[in-house]
């Protein structure tokens, strides 16, 4: 039903296809990539596009296309994993705070306040600075920092659900708390959580590739999009096309993810299909904008 609604919107369908294809290509990278990504071939340094190497070769004669394909893994798949981990923690904390309220809520939210009082980018740099550069450390830093923000937003989603009449009925009927949460609270909150998570995905891809570009992310010789651009930077003025390919790929992926998140939001909100501008939508829209900022 949900998929069908997204599918009906042509641009959203295109975005979904792009994101899906990216994930699939990333998973099956060894089957799809025409050459091993780290195969050095000094005779082909800075070779242009050819039938054998579709996008040409980089400063070590490595196949740019294969490196782009392998780059999906750290740039998209691992980011997705970090996103899922932090959303998972955030949802758990958000539900605990929103469902039990009282002291649990107060303690958890103060904790979130403290976490959120550090600007995100600075904290990532700090954690990476202390643990040392590397993709794992960046991902750890992201999970450690992002959960607080997700917890905050998810708590506000949970609050009205936990107060709903049917949840009270379930309590009166003597249902266990875990059952109520899993059966009655979580399913209602899940679509909202999906929208919140997907809206953070695009900016996370950009940030992590940015850190790799600065040399703080994945280390050579592994392929990563930000890292490829960092390598292409020294020859930026003579061979700008090496810089162009990963940049365009990032742009396409991030705008598809953002667009998909927008249409997911629309698809989940039946009100939007009938009336275009109600106040409820505006509130959601503002939350979305806030999510983009993070």
């Amino acid at each position: 039903m949900l998929l069908k609604r997204i599918w009906n919107d042509r641009l959203a369908a295109l975005s979904l296809t792009i994101v899906g294809a990216m994930l699939l290509i990333g998973i099956c990278a060894p089957l799809i990539a025409p050459h091993p990504p780290n195969e050095v071939n000094m005779e082909l340094r800075y070779a242009g596009a050819s039938w054998q190497y579709w996008l040409g070769n980089d400063h070590l004669g490595r196949c740019v296309l294969s490196r782009l394909i392998y780059g999906i893994r750290p740039s998209v798949l691992w980011v997705l994993a970090a996103l899922i981990a932090s959303v998972f923690v955030g949802t758990a904390v958000g539900i605990a705070a929103g469902y039990w309220r009282g002291r649990v809520d107060a303690v958890l939210m103060r904790l979130c306040d403290i976490m959120l009082s550090f600007p995100g980018y600075v904290m990532t740099l700090a954690v990476v600075g202390m643990l040392g550069p590397g993709l794992t450390n960046i991902l750890i830093a992201f999970v450690c920092l992002k959960w607080a923000w997700f917890a905050r937003v998810i708590r506000t989603v949970i609050l009205p659900i936990a107060e709903a009449d049917y949840v009270k009925f379930a309590k009166v009927l003597g249902a266990s708390q875990l059952w109520i949460i899993v059966r009655h609270v979580l399913p209602i909150a899940l679509p909202e959580v999906a929208v919140i998570a997907s809206s953070a995905f695009g900016s996370m891809i950009l940030q992590i590739s940015g850190l790799s570009f600065l040399g703080l992310g994945i280390q050579a010789p592994h392929a990563e999009w930000g890292m490829m651009m960092n390598e292409a930077r020294t020859v930026m003025f003579t061979r700008p096309e090496l810089m162009l390919a990963p940049g365009i790929v990032i742009m396409v992926v991030v705008s598809s993810v953002n667009f998909l998140s927008d249409s997911l939001q629309k698809a989940l909100d039946p009100k939007l299909m009938v009336i275009r501008s109600t106040n409820g939508m505006k509130h959601r829209y503002q939350r979305k904008e806030a999510a983009l900022q993070q």
Partner: peptide, 18 residues
């Protein structure tokens, strides 16, 4: 603006500099 926010800042910077 949708397209521009999807652009990596360092990439845009490099292109503009070039």
């Amino acid at each position: 603006s949708f397209l521009l926010t999807a652009m990596p800042a360092y990439w845009l910077a490099a292109l503009l500099a070039w």
